[in-house]
Amino acid sequence: MRLLVLAEWFKLKHDSRFKIIALTCLLLEGILIQGNYIQKTDMLLQEAPNGYVGSSTTFWQIALLAAISFFCASDFITGAIRNPISIGQTRVGIYLSRLIAAMIMTAALLGLLALAGGIAMFFINGTGSESLWAGILAWGIALGKQIVLHLAYPAAFLMIAFITRSPAMSLLISFLFIIALMLAPYAVSILLPNLFPLFVQALPDSHIQRLGTENENFIYGLAVCGGWFAVTSIVGCALFARTDIK
């Protein structure tokens, strides 16, 4: 397992695709920050400097699903997934090493965007009434919470990548998954209004969006996102362990 994680880390360091996706994200983040600055929106003023961690959840999720789709699902196309299996590595170990790589990608992408956003907000607004170190600490805690709750997504995207075994299909299905998560609350509110409050509580995004707000319950959010993480990881791992590799 340790060896597999080391290999994944080596790939992440040397594969230019992840760097390209991260830099593209950074560029888009810069454009969003600039847009907010020009328009002087409330969001900019309210969320800066701490808690400003990526301007758009959906935009960030698309970047992540692209990274995971290209990075993990392509191993099935190139056949590279055969290499660890045929020298006796366990499939559970292989899946978990990919999951750790996906989590690292999540933390790296989110951290990068947050850092860019945080620095920009600092230069635009300063730290307000807070001291610099208090601001950095608050920003760090907010980012940590964001990353932990967001880990539900790489787990889901990885499961999709391992089921579809094709970067293009993984990209498409993961994108539809995000859209479905966005639209599902509207559908439930119309079709099953009584279930709506409960349904919304079961979605990771509901808790991620509440981060930094007054009605935040981080532990509850952790339980919900942890549940998504566990279920998708177990399903993905179990399917991978039991199916044939072409």
Binding site: K11, H14, D15, S16, R17, T78, G79, A80, I81, R82, N83, S86
Partner: peptide
């Protein structure tokens, strides 16, 4: 087996 199992970007 079949196609060479390599990472094309490396």
């Amino acid at each position: 087996i079949e196609t060479p199992a390599i990472y094309p970007n490396l």
